[in-house]
Amino acid sequence: MFGIITPSGLHFERHHQGWWDIDPSNHRLMINGLVKAAKVYTMDDLMRLPQVSRIHFIECGANTGMEWAKVAVPTVQYTHGMLSCSEFTGVLLSTLLDDCGIDLKKARVILAEGADGSSMTRTISLDRALDDVIVAWGQNGEMLRPENGYPLRLVVPGVQGVSWVKYLRRIEVGDMPYATKDESVHYIDLMPDGQHRQYSSIQEVKSVITSPSGGQVMLENGFYNVSGLAWSGRGRIKRVDVSFDGGNNWRSADLTSIVLPKALTRFNIGWQWDGKPAMLQSRAIDETGQIQPDSRALRAVRGTKSIYHNNSIQTWQVRESGEVFNVQL
């Protein structure tokens, strides 16, 4: 992948009860709960409303989840592959909630529900729902594809993919979280003391070098353009540093793409490979000042059994043969 946009045909997929092909003329979105008037919108209705097009990343909460305790998989596709970035088009959820007369005195959360087999549900905090959440039908200039939720999905910028409910059919405004299956049995982060963090949602500042990366081979010595991606669920990427000696010394990379909030950002940096072993790392810093931690710092707080929200620094070891390996320090 080059740049920051994931071609829709290469978008990662995770389904919670099936892959549905819905006739948009039969699709409806209901908004009910703590609103003045529960309403139903057809696609015809929704597509008349004021719309936005925004570029955001979507990352599975379990991306890099295999690597909490030790190295488990060979390439960046398996360590970081449940990540995509697209331009989404739709109506802001805040527009719809306003249209239904949301009761802002009582409302604390919303519940988003899909039209898949399980009517999959997720709770989203109200401050987020009113901030930048989009009820989207467009992706990268075309309608959503069925595997991405056609004809309607929720876009929850900065938050793990499971909350981006596909085949979206209902929004309920409530005054307490719903503890649905995917926020009570899965997508909960096990801490070293045996407690689970519930409703952990934000995908924190993270980056990875995509070229060269695990499983690849550098054909010969000399100049290389080292390239990677950085992102943060808390805002824009401010800086990315790259190390070629396992984190002992760092140089700041060029941010060569447009830098948008809660979107992938492409970084590049030149490197003369002298043919000797090297350890490549990247470290992102976002506009809130949060710095991507190494795995030791992350494990010191969160242990090794969390599965979710692993945003630690990735190390790629380049051997004299030119082959690149996934390692941890």
């Binding site: 905090s125 401050d127 987020r128 952990s200 808390r234 002992n248 710095i291 931690p293 710092a297």
Partner: peptide, 25 residues
Amino acid sequence: MTTAHGLWDVKGKPDVNGSNCMHNC
């Protein structure tokens, strides 16, 4: 279950931060 973490609210406070050391780290 605990909700005492910074990964829920839009302005939730991070619990882990990295180092911004540049040389001889």
